[in-house]
Design a protein around this nucleic acid. Sequence first.
DNA 1: TGTCTGGCGTAC
DNA 2: GACGTACGCCAGACAT
Length: 921
Amino acid sequence: MKTLLLVDGSSYLYRAFHAMPDLRNSANEPVGAIQGVLNMLRRLHKDYPSDYSACVFDAKGKTFRDDLYPEYKANRASMPDDLRVQIEPLYETIRAMGWPLIIEEGVEADDVIGALAKQAEKEGIRTIISTGDKDITQLVNENITVVNTMRDAFRKTDDVLDIAGVENKFGIPPSKIIDYLTLVGDSVDNVPGVEKVGPKTAVKWLTEYGSLDNIIANADNIKGVVGENLRKALPWLPTARELITIRCDIGIREHFDELIPKAPDKPALLALFDHFEFRGWKRDLDKLPDGATAPLIENSVLPTVEELSGQAGGDYSPDTRRLYQTILSDSELEPWLTKLEQAALLCFDTETTSLDPMQAKIVGVSFSVTPGEAAYIPLTHDYFDAPPQLALTATLAKLKPILENPDIKKVGQNLKYDMHVLANHGITLQGIAHDTLLQSYVFESHKGHGMDELSERHLGIAPISYESVAGKGAKQVSFSQVTVEVAAEYAAEDADITLQLHQALYPQVTVSDKLRFIYEQVEMPSMQVLQRMERNGVLIDSHMLNRQSNEIGLRLMEIEKQAYELAGQPFNLGSPKQLQEILFGKLGIKPLKKTPSGAPSTDEDVLHELALDYPLPKVILEHRSLAKLKSTYTDKLPKMINAQTGRVHTNYNQAVAITGRLASSDPNLQNIPVRTAEGRRIREAFIAPPGSQIISADYSQIELRIMAHLSQDAGMLTAFANNEDIHRATAAEIFGVDKAAVDNEQRRYAKVINFGLIYGMSAFGLAQNLNIERGAAANYIERYFARYPGVKAYMENTRALAKQQGYVETYFGRRLWVPEINSANVQRRNGAERAAINAPMQGTAADLIKLAMIAVDQWLTEQKLQTKLIMQVHDELVLEVPEHELALVKQTLPVLMQEVATLSVPLLAEVGVGNNWESAH
DNA sequence: TGTCTGGCGTAC
DNA sequence: GACGTACGCCAGACAT
């Protein structure tokens, strides 16, 4: 039986555009989507050899569905320019590859695919349809199969939707898919279904009543809100069904002989690849003899790292072999130990009992030293009939010399976590060379960095998800409960994929010296400092916090009583919704502003304003601030103390903030209150052990100093060079008075303006913040820019640069992408402009303090000091210092911080010492 | 009972 | 709509 392969090009085009990095050639033309689609076609060609094939795209313009329903796809944003310009070149390339290309006016790609598949069936041809769109499963039958290509690189059985596959996935046979989709609706295409009916309800009904027609006939018998919703939807459902049904009856010109793939047009392809700068593919092409009729793509040879580093990036060809071994005996382990000892680069991954890095114990370890090949060593799987496994202690003892050998270089994904896990077993990981999480973060900080996501984006491979092996939420089990067979496939793949990600990503980081610096000199060393900081932990006086919790609890009860009296009824003070009803309903107060969703706001600003005229808002404000302190801090922090160490170990996430900042979580130690006296009491519970003190050092005005440096504004530079009070200096400038004559109010204004500018604040925002007229605010900004023209020019330049190249840079060259800078949506674009202005300052500050942390950590190690770094709060480092080292650290720490880089303005670090964090300020 | 979202508030 | 970057709490809606 002959085979026809049909590809829904449009579906993959969108997917590729959003999934691929924003790749551009030297002419700055976007080529990422082109590469993504071609990559997919290459793989399809290889995985599904076929006699006939076609790549089908939606035509421009309206289809019969738009006539049927004007709202069809109305929610869809117009096509981004960056995507639109890739379409014609993509068509051209597909034709040059010899693929038949079909674009039919007035219908959608789905309809063309449906018609061709049905026609093929009549002629005794089997059809495979490749698409990311679930609607098309309605076509599935004995001769028509759907495959989802993003996931099929290895596990064809998983994602091949034949009749059984569809039943498996949706819970109903393909013949009922149309009915199913009609009920559920399709939010992507803006086709509503029945409100509140999701997959579960739809399957239930279809199983019970057999068909949509029968459900409609029985609509009166269905109870509850969903039944009501169904009856409301009755007039609509026929239209929905028509929209969802793929039209297989349209006339298609193509004859099957025209769908036999032709030989690639080598010169045309060469020219195109040359233009796109797909160097890897160009090389593949060079290997083809002229006029070759061989399929374009064979298994390509894995490029060396040297080859890769010369490429524009992104066209690493993944190795899709899966030579995975499960190691259950010493005789299987020994050869691998030898392999690991001799490896140029060893990739490993740990599977553990917990997400908490300080608690996690090893369940198994996986290794890979060659792409496509990996081993999993299960160690402590403990479900009831688990196979006998190698002994944990003895095996780790054999691995320890390898993992602690600084000459055996290691790569992993988020090695900071694995370092903790190994440390939990007494192993100090050394030879840390690479981390794919950090590579991705340096390359594209604004995108996701999860391994699965990276694999799809850079390798075109969808790995087995953690969720699919261990479940999620309440159903999640410890990894030790996962069967060894399943765990081995998952874990070995992780090590394999991570190694391949390194091969795909590292060359992209090192094409630029600046990015290489950020990766090698900032992020990789920071990771290890952060690991030590997390492990050091912070000592918390839990008794003190418990006492505070009790106190606050009592006061909250009093406040609640007052509030109930003022409201005339009890209500939940913690519920903005109930509060809205009381204030703006029952008490008849006029709302001042709305939340983004349109509800009347009860935020702090509003309540302050209302407190001038009414008693209740003031009570609510006090309740809010106390409830916040209690729930988030005084109740929570004592619970986060690690039972073994007696200390709190935060997690510093190094790859989430798009500007390069760190983010602290579990618990977040970077938002401990400081502004109010009440809040600062919490910092008194951050203590040093007996014989030690807390030292805190923070950079003074770091972002404004960076603004002075980046803008080279003469006035700013002078002010900092003379070590002036910058807000006072600014006030003197904009109010036209002598510095000595600046009053507190003027200085406060200047401070708000200085900070506002860093964040790209508008006159509106400034007016709101200072509670002044908008005109007055605009006036201040105008005067500011007149006095600091360099700052003005810098901001304009930054905006322009962001628009032109899609990213801005920090002083050290960290790349900060602002993808929405050219968005058609005004709000998004404005937001991106503000982000672009802020990013170099916030990001440079982040770079500086990371370098400072590395310098401090190195100094402490070299001097063999017992002083420990324990916290970083963006512009502040907190250390725990034994008393005999106090004088030395107090003197050296600020110097290390100040001399970490030489800008046009001096950096200033201010130090404080105390028994606790509060008194160290 | 679990999961997700909106509203809000803490830090720098 | 209007000030950038984060994390996280609670309530409420909805699905299981």
